[in-house]
């Protein structure tokens, strides 16, 4: 994991938070609820028990009625980063490093943005870290789950309502993708599926016979990697991507595919631009 690259990128980035109202702890982001920020939200008649400090005395003077200023609440939204801990994420060192870097970058940018980052690692032994502990948790992450993300989610603590949920995985498994995306978007104001793919996932090499072994189940398949076989793989991969993208859109989310061989900066400037915005604005 290239933490230096992450550190270089964090100052100039911000998470693209959704424009819908947020909920969360008291913070700097205007929330959907009324609160104590300086932004005026509404007026209403005073009711017993209301904070007298919010009474608009000018209006009282003009109208003779007790009018209360309702201000918008400022909250600090939660950002959940869910990292797929299955063995396929470690198909190559670069793929594992890329996944860690993206998760760390998301958490770091969120923290710098005043949000509350929470890291959930869906591995064989689920991990949960918050705030600055995310970095250490990522260091300790081993991609060792012998099942895919849809199965390992069951081992995680329940996903809590949050402002933004970023799921880092390769999403290369057979599952009910619409149901998975729907589950991942539940309680989140925004959902990003960051798909980290190895070069072999995108364009496998061929030309000879091979014994293909599934990274998670160890199931084997004897195959001659001829042109026809590779073309069939490409067709099925494209079809899988289409299904995944459609499922993400239906869940009001977005699928961002990050080729692991690419540098982190190139990824941020390229396929991950919808997630990271320049300048650090919310």
């Amino acid at each position: 994991m290239d933490e230096a690259a992450v550190a270089r990128l964090v100052p100039g980035l911000g998470l693209a938070l959704p424009r819908v109202p947020h909920r969360g702890r008291v913070g700097e982001v205007r929330a959907t609820s009324a609160g104590s920020s300086l932004e005026l939200h509404d007026f209403r008649a005073y009711q017993p028990g209301d904070d007298l400090r919010q009474v608009d005395w000018n209006a009282v003077a003009r109208t003779g009625e007790m009018v209360l200023r309702v201000r918008q609440e400022e909250v600090s939204p939660r950002v959940e980063v869910v990292l797929d801990g299955s063995r396929s994420m470690a198909l190559s060192p670069r793929k594992a490093a890329c996944a860690r870097e993206l998760a760390l970058l998301t958490a770091e940018v969120a923290g710098r943005q005043g949000l509350t980052p929470t890291l959930l690692v869906a591995g064989a032994r689920p991990e949960r870290a918050q705030g600055p502990a995310c970095r250490a948790a990522l260091h300790a992450t081993t991609f060792d789950a012998r099942d895919d993300l849809s199965a390992s989610l069951a081992r995680l603590p329940p996903l809590r309502p949050c402002g933004l949920r970023v799921v880092v995985s390769d999403f290369l498994f057979e599952a009910d993708l619409p149901a998975l995306c729907s589950r991942l978007s539940r309680g989140a104001a925004g959902l990003f599926l960051v798909q980290v793919l190895d070069a072999e996932d995108l364009d496998p090499s061929g030309g000879e016979g091979a014994r293909l072994v599934d990274s998670e189940s160890d199931a084997a398949l004897e195959e001659l990697l001829t042109e026809d076989v590779l073309a069939a793989y490409a067709r099925r991969f494209a079809e899988h991507q289409r299904s995944l993208r459609a499922a993400a859109v239906r869940a009001r989310g977005a699928l961002l595919t990050a080729p692991a061989p690419d540098a982190l900066a190139a990824l941020v400037a390229g396929p991950l631009r919808p997630l990271f915005v320049a300048g650090g604005g919310a």
């Binding site: 198909l91 996932d201 990274s215």
Partner: peptide
């Protein structure tokens, strides 16, 4: 020559 793949 086993080849490990992400998605069999």
């Amino acid at each position: 020559k086993p080849v490990v793949v992400s998605a069999l």
